[in-house]
Computed example of a mutant assay.
Amino acid sequence: MLWPHGTQSIALIGFGVTAGFLLGNLIGDAWSGAPLLDFLDYRGHKLATTLTITLVATAGACFFFYSLGKSKHLQGQIERARRDATEARLKLLETQLEPHMLFNTLANLRVLITLDPPRAVAMLDRLNSYLRVTLSGSRTLAHPLGAEFDRLADYLELMSVRMGERLRYALELPAELREVPVPPLLLQPLVENSIRHGLEPKVEGGEITVRARREGDLLVIELSDTGVGLDAASPSTSRDGGGFGLEQVRERLTTVYGPRAALTLAPGEHTGTRATLRFPLQASSTGDAPAASPTP
């Protein structure tokens, strides 16, 4: 706060009143041509009038600076409360996404246990490794884009155990973008959506490609697949780009980056679907995400 506390406050007020009283009257006497220290003359209540003006001005100045300091303090509290609310919201969205992914994986694992036990064991080992990496670190609201791509590679390897050669993927991340902070689990719901609605309905499977690039002050991430496409996908996906995972991604983007962030779905260049994320390289002032933790 701008306003001091305790004895400092009393000393500051006393010094200000004394200095202002003496200096102001000396300047006034010099300006009007009155004798030096003429304000000390009691005749005509000069001293009483001068003291009254000084006290009124002092009270006004004290109230102004006290109000200014209190306003700054309250504004800081509001900003902290807004950041805390944003952090709590992001943590809630992340905790909703993780069980969603885990339940889908366990459902697939249950099928494999009956049809192909060796692949089920391999998938369980991958899941164990994936969860160890994912849950071993403390929860953060942001991590480097490189860590997000590494996490995505782990998830795709996990899905490759189940789908075999039907799933192929490529991840393209320029070195200069690896340290850009992004919310965790930002891309996984998009990949999960591509596998579930694009590649799985296709007998021969397909390929998923994830690319990141910079356009001015925006980070652009494109995820394309060679699946069945929007027209053949489930109604909830093809009609309005909905679905649990996609809505969570949109909500998290808006919470962190504001109205400049966007997620769009469009048909692929030849086949399949293309999902494009665009958001500022820096989080918006209304929804600041903390700095990313270093890549392990």
Rank of each mutant, 00 (worst) to 15 (best):
F149T: 07
F149Y: 15
L152C: 10
L152S: 14
A153C: 09
A153N: 15
A153V: 10
D154M: 14
D154R: 15
D154C: 03
Y155A: 11
Y155P: 00
E157Q: 13
E157P: 00
L158R: 12
L158D: 07
L158T: 12
M159Y: 05
M159F: 01
M159D: 13
S160I: 00
S160T: 13
S160D: 04
V161N: 12
V161G: 04
V161H: 09
R162L: 08
R162C: 00
M163K: 00
G164M: 09
G164K: 06
G164N: 07
G164W: 02
E165I: 05
E165K: 14
R166E: 02
L167W: 01
L167D: 02
L167V: 01
R168C: 06
R168H: 09
R168G: 11
Y169H: 10
Y169G: 03
A170R: 15
L171H: 03
L171W: 05
L171Q: 01
E172N: 13
E172D: 15
E172V: 12
E172A: 10
L173K: 01
L173Q: 03
L173W: 01
P174W: 09
P174H: 09
P174M: 05
P174L: 06
P174D: 07
A175P: 02
L177E: 08
L177V: 10
R178G: 09
R178D: 07
R178I: 01
R178W: 00
E179V: 04
E179A: 13
E179N: 14
E179K: 11
E179S: 14
E179I: 01
V180W: 07
V180K: 07
P181S: 11
P181M: 12
P181H: 11
V182P: 05
V182F: 10
P183V: 14
P184Y: 08
P184R: 07
P184K: 07
P184I: 02
L185V: 12
L185P: 06
L185R: 09
L185W: 10
L186S: 11
Q188T: 14
Q188E: 14
Q188F: 02
L190Q: 03
L190E: 00
L190P: 00
V191E: 03
V191F: 01
V191W: 01
V191M: 06
E192T: 05
E192G: 03
N193W: 05
N193H: 12
N193I: 03
S194L: 12
S194Y: 07
I195R: 04
I195V: 15
R196D: 11
R196K: 15
R196S: 12
R196Q: 13
R196C: 01
H197P: 02
H197M: 08
E200I: 12
E200C: 04
E200F: 03
P201Q: 11
P201F: 09
P201E: 08
K202H: 13
K202C: 04
K202V: 02
K202L: 12
V203H: 13
V203G: 06
V203Y: 09
V203T: 14
V203C: 02
E204F: 05
E204W: 06
G205N: 11
G205F: 06
G206M: 02
G206V: 00
G206I: 00
E207V: 09
E207M: 10
E207I: 03
I208G: 05
I208N: 04
I208E: 03
I208D: 04
T209Q: 08
T209F: 00
T209S: 08
V210Q: 03
